[in-house]
Lab assay of single mutants.
Amino acid sequence: YHADPSLVSFLTGLGCPNCIEYFTSQGLQSIYHLQNLTIEDLGALKIPEQYRMTIWRGLQDLK
């Protein structure tokens, strides 16, 4: 799967570019796929713990 530029820029902007593959490997290719994820969902996606809160907060800021 290839990540949408919106996803790449979002995660890169948060300092988490190495997390892109965790999302794309589950078929979550764009920022729209991420918008309703919970902190528990990020854990289920195996996002490293040190990035989960950062990503979750970033998603809240998009709403």
Rank of each mutant, 00 (worst) to 15 (best):
F10D: 00
S9F: 04
Q26M: 04
Q35I: 05
T38E: 06
S25V: 10
T24F: 04
V8T: 14
D61R: 08
S9L: 06
A44E: 15
W56K: 06
Q60K: 14
L42K: 02
L7A: 03
T54L: 10
Y51K: 12
I20D: 03
Q26A: 14
L7D: 01
L11Q: 08
L11I: 13
E49N: 14
W56L: 12
A44K: 13
H2F: 15
N18D: 13
L14P: 00
Q29N: 06
S6Y: 04
I31C: 10
H33C: 08
L59P: 00
C19Q: 12
T54D: 10
F10A: 02
S30D: 11
L7V: 08
I55Y: 00
D61V: 06
R57G: 10
T54Y: 04
L62W: 13
Q26I: 05
L28I: 09
L34C: 08
E40S: 09
Y22P: 07
L11H: 01
P5E: 15
K46N: 11
L59C: 06
K63Q: 14
P17D: 09
H33T: 11
I55G: 00
Q26L: 04
I31M: 11
W56V: 08
Y22W: 03
P17I: 06
G13M: 07
S30G: 07
N36A: 09
K63R: 05
P17L: 12
Y51V: 08
E49A: 11
S9G: 14
L11F: 09
I31K: 06
Q35V: 13
G15T: 02
A3L: 15
Q35S: 13
Y22M: 09
E21A: 08
T12W: 04
Q29V: 10
L14V: 12
L62P: 09
G43Y: 10
S6P: 05
N18C: 06
S9W: 02
G43W: 05
Y51C: 07
L34V: 12
Y32A: 11
F10P: 01
T12R: 13
P48Q: 04
D61C: 03
A44Y: 10
V8H: 10
Q60S: 12
S9C: 03
I20P: 01
K63P: 02
Y51H: 07
Y1D: 15
P48C: 02
M53V: 08
C19S: 07
I20L: 12
Y22L: 11
P48S: 05
L28H: 14
T54N: 04
K46V: 07
W56G: 06
C19Y: 04
D41N: 09
C19M: 13
R52P: 01
G15M: 02
L45T: 07
G13F: 05
I20F: 03
S25R: 10
S6C: 12
R57Q: 09
I31R: 08
L62A: 06
N18M: 05
V8N: 08
G27A: 03
G58I: 01
S9E: 10
T24L: 09
L59E: 00
F10S: 01
E40G: 13
D41W: 00
Q60A: 13
L28Q: 09
T12H: 11
E21G: 12
C19A: 09
G15C: 04
Q50R: 13
W56Q: 12
L14I: 11
F10L: 03
Y22C: 05
C19D: 01
F23E: 00
V8Y: 10
Y1P: 15
P5R: 14
E21Y: 09
F10W: 03
I20S: 08
E49H: 09
I55H: 00
L37K: 11
M53C: 07
L34K: 01
N18Q: 09
F23T: 00
A44T: 09
D41G: 11
Q35Y: 12
T54K: 13
N36V: 10
I31H: 05
Y32I: 14
L28P: 03
L11C: 06
F23W: 00
E49M: 15
D41H: 04
P17F: 12
A3M: 15
L62I: 09
R52V: 09
N36R: 12
Q50W: 05
I47Q: 00
S30A: 08
L34Q: 02
F23M: 03
E21T: 08
V8D: 15
T12F: 07
L45G: 02
D41L: 02
P17G: 10
C16T: 05
C16W: 01
L59Y: 06
G58D: 02
L14E: 02
